[in-house]
Design a binder for these strands. Structure first.
Lengths: 195, 195, 195, 195
DNA sequence: GATGAATGAGTGTTCATTCAT
DNA sequence: TATGAATGAACACTCATTCAT
């Protein structure tokens, strides 16, 4: 195993997530990331072209992972579209639970990054969104979901609603249990979707 | 005195909205705001303590206006809770249609500002949110909306969904008509809310 | 009498002395001087060309007054050179007692002003210094003071010593009584001067 | 590393002394110091927290050096108090001769710095002053100096006198020889001090 | 004269990025 | 690869001074 030969590139990424979450991307200092990652400032630039690239890589890793997990769910034949939709929502909630700092970065910085350089943003994001759409379309086709909605619109609606809720939760986690939020979201959304 | 030939304080605010929308708050340059406002750099500081204060004032003005309009809707006795809910959604859509730049600023910078200085953020925002909640509660009391949801959670969900949709639209307005988005939101949300 | 028709030019000077004493010339704000003087910022410039001119005028007024008083002492025939020397020292001490703020400005800013614009500095200063020298020379001529010193050098020595002592006292007036300082100065200096 | 090709920290200090002497602390520009030191503007802040810190460091270095030299004199047993007093005066004169720019900074800025941040001012200054006092006290104890003076007061008087004389000389060195000044000071002061 | 809003040149300081070692 | 001292462009903010009223 190559344990303490340590993956510096990844150490930097993990440190960056923490620092971006704490201070926001624009107020984050490179030297603080380096410090937290246990490397010299200059070493950051051995692994990443610049500050923005670090942020891009964070999102690439995030959406690649989420996409792969959603793909696994989507491929399953033992569950129906409704259950797959539940799975999608659980996916996002689980991500937040496992890595709150990453979630904060996602909520706060994704807009900025997409607007700044749409081409540079990871294609996994779009693939994830598309796959989510597929699941809903599948539900409509199977007569489980209502056809009276525009799937692309509702998909964004649900995505934005989730994101905002998770953000609220991240700021004051004591106010609501994530489980309560999760159940309300599922209940409300499915009432909107189900036939 | 050389003041009042056209409310410079407001000129600055309007210019700031444009510049913040274009470049984002953090990349916006004070001198560019001044230029666009037709004012000297130093004059910005006659009207606003610093850059952040300008952003705060933008949100104060925005939420004060929205709150007052929602209050007017809420007070009406000639329409029921469902129609009031429609009114709430129309309010936000209208704001976006009238001032897309303001909407972009709202979507991109509100999180940052609230996190940076929660106390300094306009109380009109919370009042607006609370009033929206009242309308839904009223609907539940009048047996129009389902009581099986947590109003505070769903209120955030809807708010976040709306915000994200409007943001998407602002970035590529040609892809969807705002009216189509508006109708889908109303339809989907009311399916979730109605008894 | 023209009392509350008020001498604004002098009000400004008095305010400036206070503000310069408190914050130092370089950190003093014109608008604070105006506020303290009870006039508008712009009015300062009706009476004085700029900030430096105010400082120059303060020193002009100070040295004109001191010179006239020393001249009166110098002219007297009823006292000898030694008593005149005592009078010179008393003059400076009295100034400090009557107007500590003015004294602080004198100690802190005179060097700066002379170096910045030697030509612009009030000629009363030089006249005062010369007159002090005369008194000592008179003492030497009358065989009261020793001729073994260079009067110009010792005059500066005494002047600097006095200034430093007064400065020390102004910073912590509780540590020494001005009278104790005065007597020590007279005693020590006269030991140095007397034949 | 790119450090140590000639002690940049000290280069900056030397440049700062020159620029402070020429323009005064408040009018000195950081970029000019950098230029003179042959260093980039930003490098100043690698070595010093800010402009004021540079000034503090100048005084620290100055008084540490003077204190150590005076301590060496004070420790000697082969010379009496009178000779030590001469040594003290020579010390200050020598400093001025070797580094007139440093002397100008000392005369012009020490008051400001002490008043602005008394705690931040180098303790070597007080130690120097105290040691000077010791020498005079020793002279009194050994019956060489008169006990009829307050040592603390006269110590300030002498210090201030010296400072002023050196300042005068630095502004127009041609008018008097430093040696003439030095001898007059010694003569006059010792007349005042000796029994 | 008196006002105080408006001005804009000026500057200390930050920090992402570079590069000699 | 790894370092961290060095860089210098960039910018928010200040404030003495002006001038239309």
């Amino acid at each position: 195993m190559r344990l303490k030969e340590g993956n510096k590139g990844n150490d930097i990424l993990l440190a960056a997530i923490k620092v971006f979450a704490e201070s926001g991307y624009h107020n984050a200092k490179i030297h603080k990331i380096a410090e937290l990652a246990g490397v010299a400032t200059g070493s950051i630039y051995v692994y990443y072209k610049n500050k923005e690239t670090i942020l891009q890589r964070i999102f690439e890793q995030l959406w690649e992972r989420l996409y792969n997990e959603l793909a696994a769910i989507s491929r399953r034949t033992d569950i129906n579209a409704i259950e797959k939709f539940d799975g999608l929502i659980d996916l996002l909630f689980d991500m937040f639970i496992k890595d709150p700092a990453l979630a904060v970065v996602f909520v706060n910085e994704q807009n900025y990054l997409i607007q700044k350089d749409p081409k540079g943003f990871t294609p996994y994001y779009q693939k994830f969104i598309d796959l989510g759409e597929c699941i809903v379309v599948e539900g409509i086709d199977k007569n489980a979901f209502t056809p009276d909605i525009d799937v692309k619109i509702i998909r964004s609606y649900i995505f934005g609603g989730l994101r905002h809720l998770l953000h609220q939760w991240a700021q004051s986690p004591e106010e609501y249990s994530l489980d309560s939020i999760r159940e309300n979201v599922k209940y409300f959304s499915k009432r909107g979707l189900l036939k």
